[in-house]
Design a protein around this nucleic acid. Structure first.
Lengths: 157, 157
DNA sequence: AGTATATTGCAAATAATATTCATTGTCAAG
DNA sequence: CTTGACAATGAATATTATTTGCAATATACT
Protein backbone atom coordinates (compact mmCIF):
# COMPACT_ATOMS: atom_id res chain seq x y z
CA UNK A 1 0.00 0.00 0.00
CA UNK A 2 1.16 3.52 -0.70
CA UNK A 3 0.97 6.58 1.51
CA UNK A 4 -1.57 9.32 0.86
CA UNK A 5 1.22 11.65 -0.18
CA UNK A 6 2.67 9.22 -2.71
CA UNK A 7 -0.80 8.70 -4.05
CA UNK A 8 -1.40 12.40 -4.57
CA UNK A 9 1.99 12.70 -6.21
CA UNK A 10 1.16 9.85 -8.56
CA UNK A 11 -2.12 11.46 -9.52
CA UNK A 12 -0.44 14.79 -10.13
CA UNK A 13 2.06 13.17 -12.48
CA UNK A 14 -0.69 11.44 -14.39
CA UNK A 15 -2.63 14.66 -14.68
CA UNK A 16 0.44 16.33 -16.17
CA UNK A 17 0.87 13.51 -18.64
CA UNK A 18 -2.72 13.89 -19.79
CA UNK A 19 -2.57 17.67 -20.00
CA UNK A 20 0.41 17.50 -22.31
CA UNK A 21 -1.86 15.91 -24.88
CA UNK A 22 -4.81 18.14 -24.08
CA UNK A 23 -6.69 15.51 -22.13
CA UNK A 24 -8.37 16.28 -18.86
CA UNK A 25 -8.50 14.39 -15.62
CA UNK A 26 -12.25 14.70 -15.28
CA UNK A 27 -14.04 13.64 -12.08
CA UNK A 28 -15.03 10.37 -13.76
CA UNK A 29 -11.46 9.66 -14.77
CA UNK A 30 -10.20 10.68 -11.36
CA UNK A 31 -12.65 8.29 -9.71
CA UNK A 32 -11.50 5.50 -12.00
CA UNK A 33 -7.90 6.26 -11.24
CA UNK A 34 -8.62 6.26 -7.50
CA UNK A 35 -10.17 2.82 -7.77
CA UNK A 36 -7.12 1.55 -9.61
CA UNK A 37 -4.77 3.02 -7.03
CA UNK A 38 -6.78 1.65 -4.12
CA UNK A 39 -6.79 -1.82 -5.64
CA UNK A 40 -3.23 -2.30 -6.73
CA UNK A 41 -2.30 -5.85 -7.60
CA UNK A 42 -5.93 -6.91 -7.77
CA UNK A 43 -6.18 -7.31 -11.57
CA UNK A 44 -9.65 -5.84 -11.83
CA UNK A 45 -11.84 -6.47 -14.86
CA UNK A 46 -13.72 -3.69 -16.60
CA UNK A 47 -16.90 -4.76 -14.84
CA UNK A 48 -15.15 -4.84 -11.44
CA UNK A 49 -13.89 -1.35 -12.04
CA UNK A 50 -17.31 -0.18 -13.13
CA UNK A 51 -18.91 -1.45 -9.94
CA UNK A 52 -16.26 0.12 -7.74
CA UNK A 53 -16.31 3.45 -9.51
CA UNK A 54 -20.08 3.60 -9.16
CA UNK A 55 -19.65 3.82 -5.38
CA UNK A 56 -17.71 7.04 -5.85
CA UNK A 57 -19.57 8.37 -8.85
CA UNK A 58 -22.96 6.70 -9.13
CA UNK A 59 -23.98 8.28 -12.42
CA UNK A 60 -21.02 7.04 -14.40
CA UNK A 61 -21.77 5.01 -17.51
CA UNK A 62 -20.08 1.80 -18.48
CA UNK A 63 -19.00 3.32 -21.78
CA UNK A 64 -17.04 5.94 -19.92
CA UNK A 65 -15.19 3.23 -18.05
CA UNK A 66 -14.28 1.57 -21.32
CA UNK A 67 -13.18 4.86 -22.81
CA UNK A 68 -11.22 5.82 -19.73
CA UNK A 69 -9.38 2.52 -19.57
CA UNK A 70 -8.56 2.77 -23.24
CA UNK A 71 -7.23 6.26 -22.71
CA UNK A 72 -5.20 5.16 -19.70
CA UNK A 73 -3.81 2.29 -21.72
CA UNK A 74 -2.75 4.62 -24.53
CA UNK A 75 -1.01 6.82 -22.02
CA UNK A 76 0.67 3.83 -20.41
CA UNK A 77 -1.04 4.66 -17.16
CA UNK A 78 -2.44 1.16 -16.91
CA UNK A 79 -1.50 -2.20 -18.28
CA UNK A 80 -4.14 -4.24 -20.04
CA UNK A 81 -3.83 -7.84 -18.94
CA UNK A 82 -5.27 -10.94 -20.48
CA UNK A 83 -5.54 -14.10 -18.45
CA UNK A 84 -7.73 -15.81 -21.04
CA UNK A 85 -10.75 -15.69 -18.78
CA UNK A 86 -12.95 -13.84 -21.20
CA UNK A 87 -12.23 -10.26 -20.26
CA UNK A 88 -9.41 -7.82 -20.00
CA UNK A 89 -8.04 -6.90 -16.62
CA UNK A 90 -6.14 -3.81 -15.65
CA UNK A 91 -3.42 -2.74 -13.28
CA UNK A 92 -1.44 0.43 -12.84
CA UNK A 93 1.76 0.56 -14.85
CA UNK A 94 4.95 0.50 -12.92
CA UNK A 95 8.33 1.83 -13.70
CA UNK A 96 9.73 -0.09 -16.64
CA UNK A 97 12.74 -1.33 -14.73
CA UNK A 98 10.85 -3.00 -11.96
CA UNK A 99 7.99 -4.59 -13.69
CA UNK A 100 6.44 -7.62 -12.08
CA UNK A 101 5.06 -10.67 -13.81
CA UNK A 102 2.23 -13.09 -13.30
CA UNK A 103 1.99 -16.68 -12.20
CA UNK A 104 -1.35 -18.14 -13.20
CA UNK A 105 -2.55 -21.31 -11.53
CA UNK A 106 -4.06 -23.73 -14.00
CA UNK A 107 -6.20 -25.32 -11.30
CA UNK A 108 -7.66 -22.53 -9.20
CA UNK A 109 -7.10 -19.67 -11.64
CA UNK A 110 -5.54 -17.42 -9.03
CA UNK A 111 -2.95 -14.97 -10.24
CA UNK A 112 0.20 -14.36 -8.25
CA UNK A 113 2.86 -11.78 -8.84
CA UNK A 114 6.57 -12.04 -8.80
CA UNK A 115 9.50 -9.77 -9.48
CA UNK A 116 12.60 -10.52 -11.41
CA UNK A 117 15.06 -8.58 -13.44
CA UNK A 118 16.35 -11.47 -15.51
CA UNK A 119 14.15 -10.23 -18.29
CA UNK A 120 16.31 -7.16 -18.68
CA UNK A 121 19.20 -9.32 -19.83
CA UNK A 122 16.89 -10.99 -22.28
CA UNK A 123 15.81 -7.61 -23.62
CA UNK A 124 19.38 -6.62 -24.24
CA UNK A 125 19.98 -9.83 -26.07
CA UNK A 126 16.95 -9.30 -28.28
CA UNK A 127 18.04 -5.79 -29.14
CA UNK A 128 21.35 -7.02 -30.47
CA UNK A 129 20.27 -10.35 -31.99
CA UNK A 130 17.00 -9.39 -33.59
CA UNK A 131 17.35 -5.80 -34.53
CA UNK A 132 14.27 -4.99 -32.52
CA UNK A 133 14.06 -2.13 -30.06
CA UNK A 134 12.26 -3.40 -26.99
CA UNK A 135 10.02 -0.98 -25.13
CA UNK A 136 8.08 -3.32 -22.91
CA UNK A 137 7.40 -6.93 -22.21
CA UNK A 138 4.65 -9.07 -20.82
CA UNK A 139 5.36 -12.39 -19.21
CA UNK A 140 2.98 -15.00 -17.91
CA UNK A 141 3.79 -18.31 -16.29
CA UNK A 142 1.25 -21.10 -16.08
CA UNK A 143 1.43 -23.90 -13.56
CA UNK A 144 0.26 -25.01 -10.15
CA UNK A 145 0.33 -22.88 -7.05
CA UNK A 146 1.32 -24.03 -3.57
CA UNK A 147 -2.21 -24.98 -2.54
CA UNK A 148 -3.11 -26.81 -5.70
CA UNK A 149 0.15 -28.71 -5.73
CA UNK A 150 -0.70 -29.94 -2.22
CA UNK A 151 -4.24 -30.90 -3.16
CA UNK A 152 -2.71 -32.92 -5.91
CA UNK A 153 -0.50 -34.78 -3.45
CA UNK A 154 -3.48 -35.69 -1.29
CA UNK A 155 -4.88 -37.76 -4.11
CA UNK A 156 -1.68 -39.70 -4.72
CA UNK A 157 -0.82 -41.73 -1.59
CA UNK B 1 9.15 -26.04 -43.32
CA UNK B 2 8.86 -29.72 -42.46
CA UNK B 3 9.12 -32.75 -44.72
CA UNK B 4 6.04 -34.70 -45.73
CA UNK B 5 7.19 -37.59 -43.62
CA UNK B 6 7.64 -35.48 -40.49
CA UNK B 7 4.24 -34.02 -41.14
CA UNK B 8 2.56 -37.41 -41.31
CA UNK B 9 4.39 -38.46 -38.18
CA UNK B 10 3.18 -35.35 -36.36
CA UNK B 11 -0.39 -36.04 -37.39
CA UNK B 12 -0.15 -39.65 -36.28
CA UNK B 13 1.05 -38.60 -32.84
CA UNK B 14 -1.77 -36.11 -32.48
CA UNK B 15 -4.29 -38.72 -33.51
CA UNK B 16 -2.99 -41.04 -30.80
CA UNK B 17 -3.21 -38.28 -28.25
CA UNK B 18 -6.85 -37.67 -29.16
CA UNK B 19 -7.79 -41.34 -29.23
CA UNK B 20 -6.53 -41.80 -25.70
CA UNK B 21 -9.35 -39.54 -24.58
CA UNK B 22 -11.89 -41.00 -27.01
CA UNK B 23 -11.72 -38.12 -29.40
CA UNK B 24 -11.55 -38.62 -33.10
CA UNK B 25 -9.51 -36.96 -35.77
CA UNK B 26 -12.46 -36.37 -38.04
CA UNK B 27 -12.00 -35.05 -41.58
CA UNK B 28 -12.91 -31.56 -40.37
CA UNK B 29 -10.33 -31.71 -37.61
CA UNK B 30 -7.78 -33.16 -39.95
CA UNK B 31 -8.36 -30.35 -42.42
CA UNK B 32 -7.93 -27.80 -39.66
CA UNK B 33 -4.75 -29.47 -38.51
CA UNK B 34 -3.41 -29.49 -42.05
CA UNK B 35 -4.01 -25.78 -42.34
CA UNK B 36 -2.16 -25.19 -39.11
CA UNK B 37 0.76 -27.32 -40.21
CA UNK B 38 0.94 -25.65 -43.60
CA UNK B 39 0.96 -22.22 -42.02
CA UNK B 40 3.43 -22.55 -39.22
CA UNK B 41 4.57 -19.30 -37.66
CA UNK B 42 1.77 -17.37 -39.34
CA UNK B 43 -0.31 -16.71 -36.21
CA UNK B 44 -3.64 -17.28 -37.89
CA UNK B 45 -6.86 -15.97 -36.40
CA UNK B 46 -9.96 -18.11 -36.12
CA UNK B 47 -11.43 -16.41 -39.14
CA UNK B 48 -8.20 -16.92 -41.15
CA UNK B 49 -8.29 -20.58 -40.29
CA UNK B 50 -11.96 -20.82 -41.21
CA UNK B 51 -11.30 -19.36 -44.65
CA UNK B 52 -8.35 -21.63 -45.29
CA UNK B 53 -10.10 -24.78 -44.09
CA UNK B 54 -13.06 -24.02 -46.33
CA UNK B 55 -10.79 -24.52 -49.35
CA UNK B 56 -10.22 -28.09 -48.23
CA UNK B 57 -13.61 -28.77 -46.74
CA UNK B 58 -16.16 -26.31 -48.09
CA UNK B 59 -19.08 -27.44 -45.94
CA UNK B 60 -17.39 -26.86 -42.61
CA UNK B 61 -19.15 -24.57 -40.18
CA UNK B 62 -17.49 -21.81 -38.23
CA UNK B 63 -18.65 -23.34 -34.96
CA UNK B 64 -16.71 -26.46 -35.78
CA UNK B 65 -13.57 -24.42 -36.22
CA UNK B 66 -14.11 -22.84 -32.82
CA UNK B 67 -14.77 -26.21 -31.22
CA UNK B 68 -11.80 -27.79 -32.93
CA UNK B 69 -9.42 -25.06 -31.85
CA UNK B 70 -10.73 -25.29 -28.32
CA UNK B 71 -10.17 -29.03 -28.39
CA UNK B 72 -6.67 -28.62 -29.79
CA UNK B 73 -5.92 -26.07 -27.11
CA UNK B 74 -7.06 -28.44 -24.37
CA UNK B 75 -4.86 -31.15 -25.78
CA UNK B 76 -1.94 -28.74 -26.06
CA UNK B 77 -1.84 -29.28 -29.77
CA UNK B 78 -2.04 -25.56 -30.39
CA UNK B 79 -1.21 -22.46 -28.45
CA UNK B 80 -3.79 -19.73 -28.16
CA UNK B 81 -2.12 -16.37 -28.64
CA UNK B 82 -3.36 -12.93 -27.85
CA UNK B 83 -1.81 -9.91 -29.47
CA UNK B 84 -4.55 -7.58 -28.26
CA UNK B 85 -5.87 -7.09 -31.75
CA UNK B 86 -9.39 -8.21 -30.99
CA UNK B 87 -9.15 -11.91 -31.69
CA UNK B 88 -7.26 -14.97 -30.66
CA UNK B 89 -4.59 -16.39 -32.89
CA UNK B 90 -3.23 -19.90 -32.99
CA UNK B 91 -0.01 -21.72 -33.67
CA UNK B 92 1.07 -25.31 -33.28
CA UNK B 93 2.61 -26.12 -29.93
CA UNK B 94 6.27 -26.92 -29.87
CA UNK B 95 8.29 -28.97 -27.54
CA UNK B 96 8.34 -27.29 -24.13
CA UNK B 97 12.11 -26.93 -24.09
CA UNK B 98 12.39 -25.00 -27.31
CA UNK B 99 9.52 -22.66 -27.20
CA UNK B 100 9.82 -19.45 -29.14
CA UNK B 101 8.47 -16.07 -28.18
CA UNK B 102 7.02 -13.07 -29.90
CA UNK B 103 8.24 -9.61 -30.72
CA UNK B 104 5.34 -7.33 -31.51
CA UNK B 105 5.99 -4.08 -33.32
CA UNK B 106 4.03 -1.20 -31.85
CA UNK B 107 4.08 0.67 -35.14
CA UNK B 108 3.31 -1.83 -37.88
CA UNK B 109 1.81 -4.57 -35.74
CA UNK B 110 3.92 -7.29 -37.29
CA UNK B 111 4.81 -10.20 -35.08
CA UNK B 112 8.30 -11.68 -35.19
CA UNK B 113 9.56 -14.78 -33.48
CA UNK B 114 12.69 -15.42 -31.56
CA UNK B 115 14.16 -18.28 -29.61
CA UNK B 116 15.88 -18.19 -26.29
CA UNK B 117 16.36 -20.54 -23.41
CA UNK B 118 17.05 -17.91 -20.79
CA UNK B 119 13.48 -18.38 -19.68
CA UNK B 120 14.29 -21.84 -18.40
CA UNK B 121 16.57 -20.36 -15.78
CA UNK B 122 13.81 -18.02 -14.80
CA UNK B 123 11.40 -20.92 -14.44
CA UNK B 124 13.77 -22.70 -12.12
CA UNK B 125 14.08 -19.60 -10.03
CA UNK B 126 10.32 -19.22 -9.78
CA UNK B 127 9.91 -22.82 -8.71
CA UNK B 128 12.23 -22.32 -5.76
CA UNK B 129 11.36 -18.74 -4.82
CA UNK B 130 7.63 -18.78 -5.23
CA UNK B 131 6.54 -22.27 -4.46
CA UNK B 132 4.88 -22.48 -7.83
CA UNK B 133 5.29 -25.37 -10.23
CA UNK B 134 5.73 -23.94 -13.70
CA UNK B 135 4.29 -25.86 -16.62
CA UNK B 136 4.43 -23.29 -19.36
CA UNK B 137 5.11 -19.67 -20.06
CA UNK B 138 4.11 -17.03 -22.52
CA UNK B 139 6.33 -14.10 -23.28
CA UNK B 140 5.68 -11.10 -25.47
CA UNK B 141 7.98 -8.18 -26.19
CA UNK B 142 6.68 -4.89 -27.49
CA UNK B 143 8.79 -2.38 -29.34
CA UNK B 144 9.88 -1.27 -32.76
CA UNK B 145 11.06 -3.55 -35.52
CA UNK B 146 13.96 -2.89 -37.87
CA UNK B 147 11.86 -1.18 -40.51
CA UNK B 148 9.89 1.01 -38.16
CA UNK B 149 13.01 2.04 -36.27
CA UNK B 150 14.44 3.28 -39.57
CA UNK B 151 11.30 5.14 -40.52
CA UNK B 152 11.58 6.85 -37.18
CA UNK B 153 15.11 7.97 -37.93
CA UNK B 154 14.05 9.52 -41.20
CA UNK B 155 11.88 11.98 -39.34
CA UNK B 156 14.59 13.10 -36.91
CA UNK B 157 17.42 14.81 -38.85
C1' DA C 1 -26.48 -54.63 -39.78
C1' DG C 2 -27.30 -52.27 -35.08
C1' DT C 3 -26.46 -49.47 -31.36
C1' DA C 4 -24.05 -46.12 -28.53
C1' DT C 5 -21.59 -42.12 -28.68
C1' DA C 6 -19.00 -38.34 -30.56
C1' DT C 7 -19.36 -34.83 -33.93
C1' DT C 8 -21.32 -31.69 -37.01
C1' DG C 9 -23.86 -27.52 -39.19
C1' DC C 10 -27.07 -24.23 -38.52
C1' DA C 11 -29.39 -20.77 -36.18
C1' DA C 12 -29.92 -18.33 -32.26
C1' DA C 13 -27.89 -16.66 -27.92
C1' DT C 14 -24.23 -14.35 -25.26
C1' DA C 15 -20.84 -11.38 -23.64
C1' DA C 16 -17.50 -7.96 -24.07
C1' DT C 17 -16.57 -3.94 -26.20
C1' DA C 18 -17.33 0.02 -29.51
C1' DT C 19 -19.96 3.62 -31.49
C1' DT C 20 -23.55 7.12 -32.40
C1' DC C 21 -25.62 11.06 -30.98
C1' DA C 22 -27.67 14.48 -28.30
C1' DT C 23 -26.35 16.77 -24.14
C1' DT C 24 -23.21 18.68 -20.80
C1' DG C 25 -18.94 20.58 -18.89
C1' DT C 26 -14.63 23.37 -19.42
C1' DC C 27 -12.11 27.09 -20.45
C1' DA C 28 -10.04 30.72 -23.12
C1' DA C 29 -11.24 34.90 -25.86
C1' DG C 30 -14.04 38.58 -26.47
C1' DC D 1 -20.18 37.47 -17.71
C1' DT D 2 -21.30 35.34 -22.18
C1' DT D 3 -19.98 33.03 -26.07
C1' DG D 4 -17.95 29.66 -28.90
C1' DA D 5 -15.18 25.65 -29.66
C1' DC D 6 -14.44 21.37 -28.48
C1' DA D 7 -13.60 17.47 -25.29
C1' DA D 8 -16.19 14.35 -22.49
C1' DT D 9 -20.30 12.05 -21.00
C1' DG D 10 -24.53 8.71 -20.64
C1' DA D 11 -27.91 6.04 -22.77
C1' DA D 12 -29.10 3.27 -26.22
C1' DT D 13 -27.72 0.78 -30.03
C1' DA D 14 -24.46 -1.75 -32.93
C1' DT D 15 -20.74 -4.79 -33.60
C1' DT D 16 -17.73 -8.53 -33.02
C1' DA D 17 -15.93 -12.80 -31.52
C1' DT D 18 -17.32 -16.71 -29.46
C1' DT D 19 -20.61 -20.21 -27.49
C1' DT D 20 -24.63 -23.10 -27.20
C1' DG D 21 -28.91 -25.94 -28.17
C1' DC D 22 -30.43 -29.13 -31.08
C1' DA D 23 -31.62 -32.19 -34.64
C1' DA D 24 -29.17 -34.69 -38.07
C1' DT D 25 -25.08 -37.36 -39.26
C1' DA D 26 -20.92 -39.96 -39.02
C1' DT D 27 -18.07 -43.38 -36.64
C1' DA D 28 -16.43 -47.27 -34.10
C1' DC D 29 -17.46 -51.42 -31.87
C1' DT D 30 -20.26 -55.62 -31.31
Amino acid sequence: MVSEEEKRQKIRLIEEKLKEKDCKLTPQRKATLDVLIENESKHLSTEDIYQLVKDKYPDIGLATIYRTLQLFDNFDIVKKLNFNDGCYRYELSEDHRHQHHHLICLTCGNVYEFDDDLLDQLEDRIESNNDFQVKDHMVKFFGYCKDCKEDDNEKEP
